[in-house]
Nucleic acid binder design. Structure first.
Lengths: 348, 348
DNA sequence: TTGTAGGCGTTATCAT
DNA sequence: ATGATAACGCCTACAA
């Protein structure tokens, strides 16, 4: 097929076994081999056997790129998530990917670091692969991203956050409600001077919604909110330490603090102990995320556990239902509201 | 496979702006638009302007599937990793993905859970996308996977583990050496009765190499190894507790224990404290992984920190060099040996 | 149940 | 620097 001139140089589609070759070997038409993979039921057993033998013998691997081009829908799903290595999103990704791949779909992944620009560029790249679906995190997108998502004829799922008024499928929870939940828990324990420490990562807008929930709950109780904003140029763990050190010095000091996430809370925990505070007697602490270390700390950390795995699984399920891969009675459920669980441990 | 009534259902390539349409709008040939995206230098400024205007006006998004088919190499890289949500691999994935995407390549991700069968199925699916490269974790593959990797005309990188004798690009460290490192550290501290606790996850073969390193180091010192094998049907944290509880009862009890990872070590730490042990005086503990909680524990955990981020970055760099996307003098470096750092904290 | 014809949107090749 | 033409490998549509 190629001349012996250049030694091992690859030409266009050289070296790869094609559907046509399998068809030839099995003495059937190409379309039958195609059906063998995509609608096996429609191929009679005798043909199926011959095809299977040929596939085995030749080591054929279907070219999904060609298939995707021909059918205008690839078995690939794009997901854009703030970060991959954070403890909460990782679970979502894992569950999503596993559910997808168990149905023959693959995950295309990118992280945005809470940046709308990075999200936009990821979405653009993903759309180029004509994905079967697209998953984005939260409802904060650039106008261009919104437009691409709206124009593209691709099912979109927004996860993590829950915004019933928005068009795409929603799988998530109400961050505002989480703030309320944490605050009420502390109010019920009798605390009155309750502070909230924001995340040091500037783009984490969902965390601000939790803060707003905290504020609303306090107002409802007739109390004044007390929001501490750490400097944005340091890691969460350090920011938590700083916040704690600063808040301890206030007179009167807060009786309880809600942190935007467990990293902040863990830093605060250590700083509090170092300062000689008894926890939770002198100061109650609530985090968010239920990171793996939460119950290894002393005192163990009271926190809210987001339904990370459930979000990933459910998002994948809805996508698969939408694609008709998984059976579904009636319409695919568009709104999927999950809940955070308050894990009461020693710190509050 | 289809719904009965679908009015605005998409046909084959409907709705999408194509290269040809852009070319028409800009009054140039299709190939010039193609060059505008792939080799902008070869397009003259005047043409470039017209094309840019047309792209903007039409909102054109290149179809990477078609491009991949035509060029037989998509800008996609597949990665198979034991698990996504584990603290160590997550960093590798993150670094790998970020480095790739900053050069216009996308990450196709799947997890194997240390199962060769799952790895095989992921590799097969990935090959169908004619990826620009493939990354797999460690050197334990099924024969079929080995064959696919060898036959496919795709650069392969093996990460995490380091096996100079194997053909694919290697980016990783020597697990055996890590076992030696941990053991010598304890020997230097004067410990003699040193035990090793294996991972409860059965497929984690790399952990067994660390164990073998430990055994070798002990033999070298003229001492007897002492390997504890926890039951495989429980989570690492629990397995660590069990191991600790069991080892405490032995007479004589070990003076120091090396754990296959930090989760096991953390469980042991808590179990030891609960049993009234003073750590590290009564028992020194060394983990592996430097999980995020390692320095939040009391006592903080002495452990070995794998070069997780570095592996991801370097793997991506080598891939990009191999593809000619990143400049590289001479051959792409095939062997890339990194080191684990021993983080000495309070527990040993 | 099986087969034939044509096209999906892009890039490689070769020409100007 | 720019363009014409022919693949790339598979799937949809229609036919037998």
């Amino acid at each position: 097929m190629s001349q012996a001139k250049d030694p091992p140089r690859k030409r266009r589609g050289a070296g790869r076994v094609t559907l046509a070759e399998v068809a030839r070997a099995a003495e059937v038409s190409a379309i039958s081999v195609s059906r063998y993979f995509n609608q096996p039921d429609q191929v009679s057993p005798p043909l199926r056997e011959r095809i299977e033998a040929a596939v085995q013998a030749l080591g054929y691997v279907p070219n999904l790129v060609a298939g995707g081009l021909a059918s205008a829908r690839g078995r690939i799903v794009g997901m854009v998530i703030p970060n991959i290595s954070g403890p909460i999103f990782a679970q979502t990704i894992q569950a999503f990917s596993d559910t997808l791949s168990s149905h023959g779909y693959q995950l295309l992944l990118a992280s945005s670091y809470f940046s709308e620009a990075q999200e936009e560029s990821a979405v653009r790249a993903f759309l180029g692969w004509s994905p079967a679906a697209l998953v984005v995190t939260s409802h904060f997108h650039s106008p261009a991203t919104e437009k691409m998502l709206a124009d593209a004829d691709v099912p979109v799922v927004e996860i993590w956050d829950y915004r019933p008024e928005r068009a795409p499928l929603q799988v998530g929870f109400l961050h505002h409600q989480v703030g309320v939940q944490a605050c009420r828990y502390l109010l019920d324990k009798g605390h009155r001077r309750i502070a909230f420490v924001q995340n040091s990562a500037a783009g984490d807008l969902s965390a601000l919604e939790r803060r707003d929930g905290y504020i609303a709950a306090l107002h409802e109780a007739g109390l004044e909110p007390w929001v501490f904003v750490p400097s944005t140029d340091c890691a969460p763990f350090e920011a938590g330490k700083q916040a704690m050190e600063a808040l301890i010095r206030r007179q009167p000091r807060p009786e309880a603090i809600i942190f935007a996430n467990d990293n902040l809370a863990a830093g605060a925990l250590l700083a509090g102990q170092r300062a000689g505070l008894r926890l939770p007697e002198d100061m109650a602490i609530v985090g968010f995320g239920d990171y793996p270390f939460a119950d290894m700390l002393l005192p163990s950390l009271t926190t809210l556990r987001p339904p990370s795995r459930a979000i990933g699984e459910l998002a994948a399920l809805r996508v698969l239902q939408h694609l008709g891969v998984v059976a579904c009675e009636g319409e695919v459920q568009r709104l999927n509201l999950l809940a955070c669980e308050l894990i009461a441990r020693e710190s509050a």
